[in-house]
């Protein structure tokens, strides 16, 4: 466009009304500075900026969700392209950065996608990056172990599983994987050792009765533990193990149950309601599935360690749906 175009017309207008425009410019600028001195304006701008920032994040998160959908559908090529772009835009550099959960998730999905496409080197490199990004997230080590195992990198898989158990010694799938690995390799001693370590590992479960938590943390190790629990309102009278109306998150057994009510002031009769105590013994068992127990049993028999097997059997009850074991974040469980 030349002098006769829109730009030319604007230029002529600016030259023709230079003084007016210059004054308007100065006035506008002064108003801008003055407006900024008004707290309400600063607050409104702050809100708008925050919204804009959140919107940009939200768009990235939506794309992460789409990529996840593709991973779950098995649309690996599309997922790989999307995840690579997402990783490039907000890479997982430092765990202190915002959206670290999602950044890690992108890496985990990317490692899985590479694996599904048969790209061993890229898959393992990505999962190693993931582990370095957030080294105390046991889930990353679980993924590392499973991918390394899938690509027959057995040593790397075992090291990853051992790291899982250092962070989360009650992670049942990893215990199962390690026990099976040792048993398959003919190392019955290590297989039994891993299981014994699992049974001994410090793990607790709350004991609840209705809305009340009787015991915040009952050791779960297959051994009997006495308990002496206060409740704000003793409104039931249990008189045996079967009558204990308690909920424990793993298989458990109860014995010697007693209810101790409070007293009525100045009277010899106990109060019919009000605070009191439950006392007794309880033992809770670590989650164990039938396949795992069968492997342990077979390993003990191979070692001719029948007393050891009996001791383990005393502390073990096989459950049908043992889940992932104890110790997970209750918020995630819900």
């Amino acid at each position: 466009m030349g002098e006769g175009g829109a730009i030319g017309r604007w230029a002529r207008a600016l030259r023709g009304h230079e003084r007016g425009f210059a004054r308007a410019y100065l006035l506008g600028l002064a108003l801008l500075v003055a407006a900024w001195l008004v707290p309400a304006v600063r607050a409104a701008t702050s809100t708008q900026l925050k919204r804009a920032s959140y919107r940009a994040e939200q768009r990235w998160l939506e794309r992460v969700a789409t990529a996840r959908d593709w991973v779950e559908e098995g649309n690996w090529p599309a997922a790989e392209r999307a995840l690579l772009r997402l990783d490039a835009e907000l890479p997982a550099h430092h765990v202190k950065h915002g959206l670290s959960l999602e950044r890690g998730q992108v890496l985990a999905d990317l490692a899985r996608t590479h694996a599904a496409l048969g790209r061993k080197r890229r898959s393992l490199e990505t999962v190693r990056r993931l582990v370095a990004f957030e080294p105390r997230n046991y889930g990353h080590h679980v993924l590392h172990g499973s991918l390394a195992d899938r690509f027959a990198e057995t040593g790397e898989a075992v090291r990853a599983w051992q790291r899982v158990l250092e962070i989360h010694p009650n992670h049942l799938p990893t215990v199962r994987a390690l026990v099976t690995h040792h048993a398959d390799a003919g190392d019955a001693e290590s297989a039994v050792g891993v299981f014994e370590t699992y049974l001994d590992a410090f793990g607790t479960t709350p004991v609840r009765r209705g809305p009340d938590t009787l015991v915040q943390a009952l050791p779960v190790d297959g051994r009997w533990h006495a308990f002496d629990a206060w409740v704000p309102d003793v409104d039931e009278r249990g008189d045996g193990a079967t009558a204990l109306p308690v909920a424990v998150e793993t298989l458990s057994e109860v014995a010697d149950l007693q209810v101790v009510p409070s007293w009525q002031a100045g009277r010899s009769q106990p109060a019919v309601d009000g605070p009191g105590r439950w006392r007794g013994r309880i033992r809770a068992f670590k989650p164990v599935d039938a396949a795992l127990w069968a492997t342990v049993e077979r390993s003990c028999r191979n070692l001719l360690a029948f007393e050891r097997l009996a001791a383990l059997a005393e502390r073990t009850r096989v459950s049908e749906d043992p889940g992932e074991g104890l110790g997970r974040d209750p918020e995630l469980q819900s």
Binding site: V95, L101, R136, N137, I167, G327, D329
Partner: peptide, 18 residues
């Protein structure tokens, strides 16, 4: 504040020596 590093675990220190 390092909680993100123990993501997925119940984080009460009194309930886990790990």
């Amino acid at each position: 504040e390092r909680g993100e590093n123990y993501r997925g675990l119940a984080r009460n220190l009194w309930h886990s020596p790990a």
